[in-house]
Nucleic acid binder design. Structure first.
Length: 666
RNA sequence: GGGCGAGUAGCUCAAUUGGAUAGAGCACCAGCCUUCUAAGCUGGGGGUUGCAGGUUCGAUCCCUGCCUCGCCUACCA
């Protein structure tokens, strides 16, 4: 509703500017006034025009308002000049509410103008240890963005990139072979033993990874030897076709499966798992290398520290003419002097594939089953019958901000190859890490040096085994919500209480990760994460539960209540100070599609989280002031019921996009 | 050294990307459950937006300089 009216207003204004002043403004700013008493839209454009027209802003505003008032504009009640030259527009409130009540689905004009085939990559955890809170932020951000893109009408493939042949996996293999003295058969036995004992393989690896990392450094005399073991192991894994690689594959696959299970607890699913092993073995790089050489993106360095390497100019390091003598020491090495390719090189090849520019595809086989679809994994030789991924028009990589540089290198390579359209639709969906507060770290039993105790946060470290595991956090949340539900609803069956607790725990966790904007570091603390009051997921769910309770008692449904509003005369019932709380709900509810658009444009889900919270707040305020079930005026009661209904509809819709499900009772 | 990000209430964060009196939550204080669920609501205190300049009708936001903090900057992956 709101977005549509905003468009109507903008079009009218553009027409007026053309006719009256012969001016075309590239961007017409429409704001939301700080308080509803100023109206629903605020336009500061008179300030901008003042200089061009050499007139006082207030005078210009008056002229425009006169033109706006000259003929009726659909949905608007009035326009006025305010302050030094603001133009405020007021909606015809009853009309707006009636229109919003009818919007059972998102209106077509509020969906993406041009639906795209988008590809979102998120999670991408090294399959060598348990997922931790930082990975949860990644997956929750990515999954939420997927839901937003889909809601706006785009086709979306969800990918989770698996670095199954990297050093981190190699470290675990070194641990199994050299510390635990295991062979392939022993690893199989270990995994069976863990299953029997109900232990998690990813937890086992968490500890082993920390042990190996320390072992590398523990003995000064053996440091070099041990680092060489690590390198040899890595190369064996990369090469494939040997026992070491088989151990790596066995363990990485098992850990990956655990990651999928952990994420599924939060409602997060994937379509495809491309693995580095296939990027290597199917020789994606060879094709990328030929293409890059042919297009002059790579050049062979003959001097300086990078002598003998194929290098690429780093984006943003273009040198002045005068300095162009000698080698570019800032250049990024893509192929080492020993002929092996770096990570960035492989990443470029992978991204050419994502856009369908490589000229080669993965093999595919089924890996994991969800109730509604299968998740596929890359394979050298896949199944004959399979879906096809890649060929995306837009890609979003949910990767933490520390990898901004390598990401920029990939974009730089695409640009250099002339793929400017693809480069423009390449989004590094960057976010800051989740760190721990010093207090939280000490609670977990980690020794925090005195000089670090005053810091706002401490970075987690997989190598030190320092962090909060995802499943531990989810378990803790579920336990806390379960005991709360148990005490509030002793009349319910235990299974039902468990289900409610599960939904609340997920709501709390997902909202916690989404309420911060992407580039703020989350200083994690159990106290905040386990809070269910104030700006939290449960607060939003509670608002929905209250509306459900109302419709149960009124023996109707939200849909019915909204339908019935059409037959009622509500003119005047949304105006005046005594009705402000009612209108505030309708206005906020009408902004959902506007927020959807903003979130996608800025790749920032936090705005929707805030919107949902504000709607819940407006509703709570309304709920206290207006008692629905005891309202005696029939028309008024219909409006109040519809107000609860529109809250429920928009809140449930927003929460669904955030991946949060509201229970029936809580 | 260079690049990126951050610095806002006691704490954790917002601020519609340059707009009206800088807002929320937590914590603290005072109230509100025989009326639709108190995981709630109302009120209160709390701010020189790191510092100093500049740009303009208007700056938390843009520019310059400085201070503090974090991250990135390998022929590691």
């Amino acid at each position: 509703m709101y977005l549509k009216q905003q468009t109507v207003l903008k079009e009218r204004l553009r027409a007026i500017l053309r006719e009256q002043y012969e001016i075309e403004l590239p961007a017409l700013v429409v704001e939301q006034p700080p308080e509803n008493k100023f109206g629903e839209f605020a336009l500061p454009l008179a300030f901008e025009l003042a200089k061009k027209l050499r007139k006082a802003p207030r005078k210009i505003a008056e002229e425009i308002v006169a033109r706006l008032a000259a003929e009726p504009l659909a949905g608007f009640a009035s326009f006025e000049v305010a302050g030094a030259g603001y133009i405020n527009a007021r909606l015809q409130r009853a009309e707006a509410a009636q229109a919003l009540a009818k919007e059972m689905k998102l209106a077509p004009e509020e969906l993406a103008a041009k639906p795209l085939h988008a590809l979102v990559e998120h999670t991408s955890i090294n399959p060598n240890k348990a997922a931790h809170v930082g990975h949860l932020r990644n997956a929750i951000l990515g999954d939420t963005f997927v839901r937003l893109l889909k809601a706006a009408g785009n086709r979306v493939d969800v990918q989770n990139y698996i670095d199954n042949t990297g050093v981190q996996v190699a470290d675990i293999v070194v641990g199994l072979i050299h510390l635990e003295k295991m062979r392939l058969a022993d690893v199989g036995a270990l995994m069976e033993r863990l299953t029997v004992e109900g232990e998690r393989i990813d937890y086992y690896c968490w500890d082993l990874y920390a042990r190996v990392s320390q072992w590398y450094e523990a003995d000064e005399a053996k440091k070099a030897e041990r680092k060489q073991m690590r390198l040899d192991t890595l190369h064996a894994i990369e090469h494939g076709g040997n026992e070491t690689a088989e151990i790596a594959d066995k363990i990485a696959t098992a850990v990956l499966r655990r990651h999928l299970e952990t994420m599924l607890r939060l409602g997060i699913e994937y379509d495809f798992l491309p693995r580095e092993s296939e990027i290597l073995h199917l020789h994606f790089w060879n094709l990328a290398f030929e293409q890059m050489k042919a297009k002059g993106v790579l050049y062979f360095e003959t001097e300086g520290k990078n002598k003998g390497c194929w290098v690429m100019q780093r984006p943003g390091t273009e040198r002045a003419e005068a300095e162009q003598d000698g080698p570019d020491e800032d250049a990024k090495v893509i192929v080492r002097s020993n002929g092996t390719v770096t990570y960035v090189g492989k990443d470029i090849a992978y991204h050419l594939w994502k856009f369908g520019l490589l000229g080669k595809d993965f093999g595919y086989r089924k890996f994991f089953e969800y109730p509604s679809h299968s998740c596929w994994i890359s394979a050298e030789e896949g199944e004959a019958d399979h879906p096809h991924f890649g060929d995306a028009q837009a890609i979003y990589n949910v990767i933490d901000s520390r990898q901004a540089d390598p990401q920029a290198n990939v974009v730089g390579a695409l640009m250099g190859m002339g793929y400017t359209e693809q480069a423009a639709r390449y989004t590094h969906f960057s976010y800051e890490m989740v760190a721990l507060t010093p207090r939280c770290a000490m609670e977990l039993g980690y020794a925090v040096p005195e000089e670090d105790q005053g810091r706002a946060y401490i970075e987690v470290s997989g190598r030190k085994g320092f962090g909060v595991k995802a499943d531990d956090l989810i378990d803790k949340l579920v336990a806390a919500t379960k005991s709360e539900v148990d005490s509030r609803h002793p009349e319910l069956e235990d299974a039902e209480r468990a289900e409610i607790a599960q939904k609340i725990a997920v709501g709390a966790l997902r909202y916690f990760m989404l309420k911060y904007t992407r580039n703020s570091v989350i200083a994690f603390d159990f106290k905040d994460a386990l809070s269910f009051e104030g700006e939290t997921g449960p607060y939003l769910q509670y608002a929905v539960v209250r509306t459900r309770s109302i419709f149960r008692k009124a023996e109707t449904t939200a849909e019915q209540a909204l339908t019935e509003l059409a037959g009622v005369e509500i003119d005047g019932m949304l105006d005046g100070e005594e009705n402000e709380a009612i209108w505030a709900v309708w206005l906020r509810a009408g902004k959902t599609s506007l927020l959807l658009e903003q979130c996608i444009q800025t790749a920032e889900p936090a705005y929707l989280a805030k919107h949902a919270f504000q709607l819940a707040q407006e509703f709570s305020n309304f709920y206290r002031k207006h008692h629905i079930l005891t309202e005696e005026n029939a028309a008024k009661k219909t409006l109040l019921l519809a107000t609860a209904a529109v809250t429920q509809r928009e809140l449930v819709r927003s929460l669904q996009w955030l991946g949060i499900d509201a229970p029936e009772v809580m």
